[in-house]
Amino acid sequence: MKTLTILEVGNLAGLVVIIVGAIILVALVISLIVTVITKLIYERKGDRKFTKKQFIQTMLISLLICGLISGYICGGL
Rank of each mutant, 00 (worst) to 15 (best):
G46F: 10
I24R: 12
I37R: 06
N11H: 14
D47E: 11
A13W: 02
I56L: 00
I65R: 09
G76A: 03
C66W: 04
L63I: 15
I23M: 12
N11A: 11
R48V: 13
L4C: 10
V20M: 10
F55K: 14
K49E: 14
K2N: 07
F55C: 10
L64P: 00
I33C: 07
V20E: 14
T3R: 05
K45P: 00
G76Y: 03
I23P: 01
T51G: 12
V29H: 09
E43L: 05
V26N: 15
K52Q: 12
V34S: 10
I24T: 08
T38Q: 12
G10I: 01
I37P: 03
F55P: 02
V16R: 00
L25A: 12
R48A: 10
L12E: 07
G46A: 08
R44A: 10
L63C: 14
L40D: 11
C74T: 12
K53Y: 02
G76I: 00
I23Y: 10
Y72A: 08
A27N: 11
V29R: 09
G67P: 02
Q57R: 02
L4N: 07
L60N: 07
Y72Q: 06
C66Y: 05
L32S: 10
V16P: 00
C66K: 01
M1V: 15
G75L: 03
I37D: 15
K52A: 11
S62P: 01
Q57H: 01
D47P: 04
T3D: 08
L4G: 05
T5W: 04
F55N: 15
I19E: 14
V16L: 06
G46Y: 15
I69G: 07
G76V: 00
I73N: 02
G10A: 03
V34P: 13
V17M: 10
C74E: 06
V34C: 08
I61T: 11
G10Y: 02
Q54F: 03
E8Q: 09
L32N: 10
